[in-house]
């Protein structure tokens, strides 16, 4: 993975004080306000919410867990990378951890850009990266008390063992 930090604009130094992982409800208006700019022609806000039905199973709530230092670092790097890659004016990403009830927000991304195309594309790109790279996991919990960690996704390319079960040389 390339390190995007070396080429990021000066503005990114503000990132240090921004909470990326939170254990309380996410205030979408606050996330949106964080990227406001008089030179922005487009602002996109994405809200990911907990849905009640996942692959036919009724979910009552989700529990999110993270390898927090790495998750925060990776989210920060992705946010920085998105700004550079799409020429954004600003970008803000917040992911919630712990228990999240159905209908509540688990992730919020706001992007501001001169034009809508960059803002939309950057938001979509960020969500894809988050779902493949950031060490955060969700556990689906049903009304009957059953709980299951979701590991149907992936980890970044190139970081799996070459052969899942070490085969002996022929």
């Amino acid at each position: 993975m390339t390190d995007p930090v070396s080429s990021v604009p000066e503005k990114l130094s503000h990132w240090g004080s921004t909470p990326i992982l939170v254990r309380h409800e996410i205030d979408a208006a606050q996330v949106l306000a964080a990227v406001a700019s008089p030179v922005a022609g487009a602002t996109v806000l994405f809200i990911g919410t907990t849905r009640s039905l996942s692959d036919g199973v009724v979910t009552q709530r989700l529990e999110y867990e993270a390898y927090e230092p790495m998750a925060a670092k990776t989210l920060g790097s992705l946010r920085d990378a998105a700004i550079v890659r799409f020429g954004l004016i600003d970008c803000h990403v917040v992911h919630r951890l712990g228990l999240v009830k159905v209908g509540e927000t688990s992730v919020a991304i706001a992007t501001s850009a001169a034009h809508r195309r960059e803002a939309f594309e950057a938001t979509q790109w960020l969500m894809e990266q988050i779902k493949h790279e950031v060490p955060i996991w969700k556990c689906e919990q049903s009304a009957d008390g059953s709980r299951e960690w979701v590991h149907s996704g992936s980890v970044p390319m190139g970081f799996l063992p070459a052969t899942p079960n070490e085969s002996s040389p022929a």
Partner: peptide, 10 residues
């Protein structure tokens, strides 16, 4: 060191 199973954030 940490083991990172397939991630499911978002």
């Amino acid at each position: 060191v940490a083991i990172i199973p397939p991630v499911s954030g978002g």
